[in-house]
Nucleic acid binder design. Structure first.
Lengths: 325, 325
DNA sequence: CTGAAAGCGCTAACAT
DNA sequence: ATGTTAGCGCTTTCAG
């Protein structure tokens, strides 16, 4: 009666009596028992497959949590420390606790093989994908992100853009770099004429790479960075050398990192990695009864966020002209 | 038998048969049913009482998760968005799911009143405390942290130290400031002679405050910041003005923020906010059967981490002398 | 030492 | 319209 089964009737009087008793005893149904009976726990397993969950796992969790709660589900959280063995173990623990579904998230987009048994409940991969795409996955559209960031710089009038990349072996780096080259080519420029320096996503690699650029004598008018942390590192190096951002050179980040990109001076122009939206999407599909139709990869747009670290190039007469025109 | 009840005996032959069946059917006990029967779910509720969980909640969760798993428990995670109503609701949801214990965590140390019902299971407050200290809580020792950071600067030879604070109304800010003044007084200095500028923990407030310092004409030899983000903001302002860190002025952060403090250039000297250790401690106490003996507040040490953003002051003859002596 | 049975708290199906 | 019952998967107790 408390669950209002359809097609059931009950007299008003009885209902009142029950409701009053509920209030008086302050009765709360035992959801474990309920779950046992109904075969669903109203609980979703969230696996963070990473050494430690950083800012990104946190946003994804927040997004997933938000919509899960709205659907009456709670998140059973687990962190694998990026270990395959731990992943298998913990997914088992989750399954034993009868989770209704699984979100398997990695930070640092990559290919993962799901621990066996995971297939026994609806599963969605977040920021990672199965080698054969047999499990539906949600991924950021990094190629487009890289392209649009580059395009924004191009539109500002920049023609000489350097790219300080993140870890080159990573999926995200490759994708963003591809977008970079696409945009360049689209503007009739030869990507090979543009400096690409390999970094590793850490702030200090942005610093080191920017110094390398500085040492060469001639700076590009704009610098794309593997992520916001590298952008901060690069800005530090630039400032230290007396180079102004964005007056002398524009800097573009990536991630729109929480409590960093918007707060730094100058506020970073960047591309937003929509982990919260991705988490929300995953939880939504799961709440709608599993990733029914969903197969393969779902690409989520990474919106460009223009702030103060980018501007039209000032030095080159040519770009200044085209910026004005 | 699978649980090896003490005082039970079983024949070797039967044991083998059972074990084999388990292996063949790849049987996994249903922990929901187990929990129903035994009255414990092997699940701990983790409440993040904050708008969104940032880096700190993440470390606390990681720490708590780590030791929980070691004890066979999993974390049921919930985020209240800092809303009292949501907190009450979600704690209810957690309790309905029969969590064995509760960790109630806030980022931004503050006083909280626990939603009623929370008292029905062992509960520990993380980074927050009850107004009357009726619930045991785990807090960072901010006074000591502020004091030791200041002392480190003093030991380096600094005598003119400015403090760019975090949000002044916050518990942490007040505590760190108290430590700052204690250290100053301990060195025979008058705190009133030292500049204290109120900020808000955001990177841009560090930037703005440092500029204010710059505009005054005479810089202190060292700057303490409310946190690492403010320190980064301050460094940005300093560099922009041609002031070198740490050659011209030392900068001290607070938090030892993941992927920031150690990676920035210069690497930040700071005080580590041990959220992971605090999470571990909470989970440990809970696993040991509730915060039995534990009452009132447990203060966790915030270790000083000296890196490259601090050095002996160079300009003042007096401080240079005492540094050498 | 092994097997059977009761019951954790709940809900769905069925009698009344 | 209300009351009763069986059983979700497990553990504990009690007979055999």
């Amino acid at each position: 009666m408390l669950n209002r089964t359809a097609g059931q009737t009950i007299s008003d009087e009885t209902r009142q009596r029950v409701l009053q008793a509920v209030a008086e005893l302050d009765y709360r149904p035992n959801r474990a028992a309920q779950g046992l009976r109904q075969g669903r726990s109203a609980t979703i397993g969230f696996v963070s497959h990473d050494v430690d969950f950083g800012v990104f796992a946190a946003s994804a969790i927040k997004g997933a949590h938000e919509v899960s709660v709205r659907h009456g589900n709670l998140l059973l959280l687990v962190n694998t420390g990026a270990s395959k063995r731990q992943a298998a173990q913990l997914v088992g623990d989750l399954l034993d606790r009868q989770v209704d579904a699984l979100i398997f998230a990695a930070s640092g987009t990559k290919s993962v093989v799901l621990p066996e048994g995971a297939g026994r409940v609806p599963t969605i991969l977040l920021n990672c994908f199965a080698p054969d795409d047999s499990t539906p996955s949600i991924l950021p559209d990094e190629v487009r992100g890289g392209r649009e960031a580059t395009q924004a710089l191009l539109d500002l009038g920049h023609r000489d853009i350097a790219y300080l990349t993140g870890t080159v072996s990573s999926w995200a780096t490759k994708a963003r770099l591809r977008g970079f080259r696409q945009a360049l080519r689209g503007a009739g420029l030869d990507p090979r004429g543009h400096t690409v320096l390999p970094g590793n996503y850490h702030a200090d690699s942005g610093y080191a790479l920017a110094r390398k650029l500085l040492r060469r004598g001639s700076l590009p008018t704009a610098i794309m960075c593997g992520n916001d942390r590298m952008a901060v590192g690069a800005i530090l190096a630039l400032l230290e050398a007396g180079v102004r951002v964005p007056e002398d050179v524009s800097v573009m980040g990536y991630d729109d990192q929480f409590q960093l990109a918007a707060e730094i001076h100058p506020a970073l122009s960047t591309v937003r990695l929509p982990y919260d939206a991705m988490g929300r999407l995953a939880a939504e599909q799961l709440a709608a009864g599993g990733p029914a139709v969903q197969t393969g990869r779902t690409l989520v747009h990474c919106p460009l966020v223009m702030r103060d670290s980018t501007a039209a190039p000032a030095r080159s007469a040519r770009s200044a002209r085209s910026a004005r025109g």
